[in-house]
C-alpha cells in the first residue's frame, strides 16, 4: 500500500518532468508561453528554497532581500568582470548565502512573529541600501544585466528555458535530498519543538543557520536567473510582493512538502495568467488574497493534500 503511493508519486514526478521537457517541442517556440514557463521555473526554485527555511519553523517575510542581492551581485560582476551569467549566478547565490548567515545569526533566537517582522525589515533595509548607493547599483533606475543566452542566437528563448529547467530540477532534487537527510529531520524536529530537539542533542543553532544559508543560496540563484532573463534589475526586486509570492505558492501547494511549492507555483501562475487575459489588475491580487485566506482556513496542508482528503471521505 505504502509502496503503491510512493510509486504513484514518482510516476507523477516523471510524467511532469517529461512534459516539461517536450513542451517547447509540442507547442513550438512560443515567446510568450516560454517566458511564462521560465518565470514559473524561477519561482519554483524560489518557493522551494523558501519552503526549506519554513521547514525549520522560520517563516521569512523578507526573502526578496536574498532574491535581490543574488540578482544585483550577479548583474554587477557580469558587467564589471565580464563573467558569463551562468557562472555569475552562483557567485550571486553564494553572496546571498553569506548575507543569509548574517541575518540568520540575528534571527535564530526569535519566535515566529518577531522573525517575520525582522526578515521583513531586512528586505526594506536592502532596498534602502540599494537605492542609496547609485554608483554601484544605479539607484532607482537599476542597471542592465547580460542575458543568460544572447538574444542574437536564434531560438535563444528555448535554450534559456532548458537551462532554467535543468537548474530547477537540480535544485529540487538537492532540496529533496536535504529534507531526507539528517538536516531535514533535524529541521522538522526543531519546528515541532525546539526545546525537545535541543534535549535530543540536535545542534539547533547550526541547523537553523544551515537552513538560512541553503535557502538564501538558492533564492539568490533564482533572483540572478530572473534578472538575467529580463536583462535588467531595479530596486523593485525588493518589493513586498516578491517576498510574498513564494509564501503564497508554498501554502497553496502544501507547506513542508517537496511537491507543494512546485504545484502551487504552477497552479497559481496558471490562474494568474488566465486572469491577465481578461485584463484584470487589482482583481487578480484580490483573488490571490482570497485564495490564500481560504486555503489557510479550509485546506491548511495545501493542494497536495486533496487526494488524501478525498480518499478519507470515500474509503
Amino acid at each position: 500500500m505504502k509502496l503503491d503511493r510512493i510509486n504513484i508519486k514518482t510516476g507523477i514526478g516523471i510524467v511532469s518532468l517529461i512534459l516539461a521537457f517536450i513542451v517547447p517541442v509540442i507547442l513550438g517556440i512560443n515567446q510568450y508561453l516560454l517566458t511564462v514557463l521560465i518565470i514559473t521555473l524561477v519561482f519554483i526554485i524560489y518557493s522551494s528554497a523558501w519552503n526549506l527555511l519554513a521547514l525549520s519553523g522560520q517563516a521569512s517575510l523578507g526573502h526578496a532581500a536574498f532574491f535581490g542581492i543574488g540578482g544585483y551581485v550577479s548583474a554587477i560582476i557580469t558587467n564589471s568582470l565580464g563573467l558569463p551569467p551562468i557562472v555569475a549566478i552562483f557567485v550571486g547565490g553564494f553572496f546571498a548565502a553569506f548575507i543569509g548567515i548574517l541575518i540568520g545569526f540575528t534571527c535564530i533566537r526569535m519566535r515566529e512573529w518577531f522573525l517575520a517582522m525582522v526578515t521583513f525589515g531586512f528586505a526594506i533595509i536592502a532596498h534602502t541600501i540599494t537605492t542609496e548607493l547609485p554608483w554601484l547599483t544605479g539607484g532607482w533606475d537599476g542597471i542592465p544585466a547580460k542575458r543568460l543566452i544572447s538574444v542574437t542566437i536564434t531560438n535563444y528563448i528555448m535554450y534559456e528555458y532548458y537551462i532554467m529547467l535543468l537548474i530547477a530540477v537540480a535544485v529540487v532534487v538537492i532540496i529533496y535530498q536535504l529534507t531526507k537527510s539528517r538536516m531535514g529531520l533535524a529541521l522538522e524536529a526543531i519546528r515541532e519543538n525546539e526545546l525537545e530537539a535541543k534535549v535530543m542533542g540536535i545542534n539547533v543553532t547550526k541547523y537553523k543557520l544551515m537552513a538560512f544559508a541553503v535557502s538564501a543560496f538558492f533564492t539568490g540563484i533564482a533572483g540572478a536567473l530572473e534578472i538575467h532573463h529580463f536583462g535588467y534589475i531595479t530596486p523593485e526586486v525588493y518589493g513586498m510582493d516578491i517576498s510574498f509570492w513564494p509564501i503564497i505558492y508554498s501554502i497553496s501547494g502544501g507547506l513542508f512538502t517537496i511537491g507543494g511549492p512546485i504545484l502551487g507555483t504552477i497552479v497559481i501562475t496558471f490562474i494568474w495568467e488566465i486572469l491577465r487575459t481578461f485584463g484584470l489588475m487589482y482583481e487578480r491580487f484580490i483573488l490571490i488574497g482570497v485564495i490564500l485566506i481560504l486555503i489557510v482556513i479550509f485546506l491548511p496542508r495545501g493542494l497536495v493534500s486533496i487526494p488524501e482528503k478525498i480518499k478519507r471521505s470515500h474509503p
Binding site: 490571490i288 488574497g289 490564500l292 485566506i293 482556513i297
Partner: peptide, 8 residues
C-alpha cells in the same frame, strides 16, 4: 499567512 491574504 492569513494576515498576508488580508493585506492583499
Amino acid at each position: 499567512f492569513l494576515s498576508l491574504g488580508l493585506i492583499y
